[in-house]
Amino acid sequence: MMKNSMKVEFMSKSQNEAFARVVVASFASQLDPTIEELADVKTAVSEAVTNAIIHGYEGKDGTVSISCRIEDREIEIIVEDNGKGIEDVEQARQPLYTSKPELERSGMGFTVMETFMDIIEIESQKDVGTKVRMVKRFASCEN
């Protein structure tokens, strides 16, 4: 059985979104996923990190952290910020809901994460921060 874990912390700058994707993708690639599986994980991570940067910190300086754990064919990814937090998580999860329509946000971030990952849990507290936990199980390799 394969077990491994890592944690990365970076500044809340938009150029770090691509960086975060590569970090998680290259960690996940230990499980030898398919292109599609890896693309799903990268998309979900992108959405969570973008949310931390633009909603959590609203463009201000802050630190975003991502913890990853792999065990067997499963990857757990936790994206955290110490930003402004979400007052109503149920509302935030609704498809099309966005608090920033003026930024041309689609309101589909959480919906995308739900679609591409097997589990998503959101913990958030106003003025403390937000923690998004996602799990994906990769199909076992037949080849």
């Binding site: 690639s29 030898d32 996923p33 292109i35 599609e36 890896l38």
Partner: peptide
């Protein structure tokens, strides 16, 4: 088909 390709091979 593309979706079934392993990342390792595409890289």
């Amino acid at each position: 088909d593309d979706g079934m390709i392993k990342v390792s091979r595409s890289l």
